[in-house]
Amino acid sequence: MTIWSKQESVRSASARMLPTGARIRGLYNERTYLIERLLGEGANGCVYLVSRGRKQVAALKLGYDAAGLQSEINLLSGLNSKDKPYLLDADDAEVEGIRCPFYVMPYVEGVRVTAFIAKRGRDWTYILIRQLLARLDELHRQGWAFGDVKPENILVSESGRAALVDYGGVSRFGDSVRQFTELYDRGYWHAGSRTAEPSYDIFAVAVLGLRLLAGHEQFDARAGHIPQNRGPEQLLTLARQTPACKPIAGFLSKAIHNRYASTGEALQDYRQQLLKWGGLKALEPLHLPWLPVAFASSFLTFVFLMWLVYS
């Protein structure tokens, strides 16, 4: 009927979830993977946790659309290096009689950055932003922008290491950004172009940092739906009104005004601001509601023991 109907039928055919214990066998490279569980579903495929042989776990993305998936494969294989593999395997498999492309990448264990901060405390935001800049710097040095910086694409491990996942938005410097999310897009904020360049990602990191520090209710109330009220100044006003933003105010302002020429420069500047501010101890006092309770209970135990001894 229309040119879209073909793709949609392919999609619905392979959108059926694969159960735990199912096997995927590559038709060309002949490697077999055992499905452990579904990790997530993206715009053009499902990502599964898989194992191969003993204990070797990896993430496997099974695609709906050969061209779309191949585009990601090309990108990951371009990023591949000896010290840091991005792509482990790429192949086709037959799933329920339908040929589906898939690729395998290292499994990144962790929780979404917002969940991590909610659990471990807001102090972590500062160091996670620094890590994020460092990860982006690695990518930028190879001539690629990440594009779609957003909480969903940042996982933090138990030990507090941030990693970027989902490379669907990665774009060559000078191209247009392939995929972005309005809230973190500088075009949306009338603060610059959608050309893939270091400052595009740095802007998104600043907005993400601001949103994490100001809280999403506060932030989203500001991210008005009226385009006239949307601009870099709105963001900076919110930053000024948020005490938690003070330590990195200089970074936020430069990033939002696209004043960093490179991510290396932004990272240096950010590091220095954190150092100057004196580290995390200057933050609000530790919030430990269990401390008085513990103190009271140990005191009561002591009194009780004294009473036992002397009566």
Binding site: Y28, A66, A67, Q70, S71, I73, N74, S77, A90, D91, D92, R99, P101, D175, S176
Partner: peptide, 21 residues
């Protein structure tokens, strides 16, 4: 595109991405 072997597919998709841009 899906019917091409992986190596050729990678090349064709690279051209497609370039045309896209």
């Amino acid at each position: 595109v899906a019917a091409l072997p992986p190596g050729k597919r990678a090349q064709v998709v690279e051209v497609m991405d370039q045309l896209n841009e």
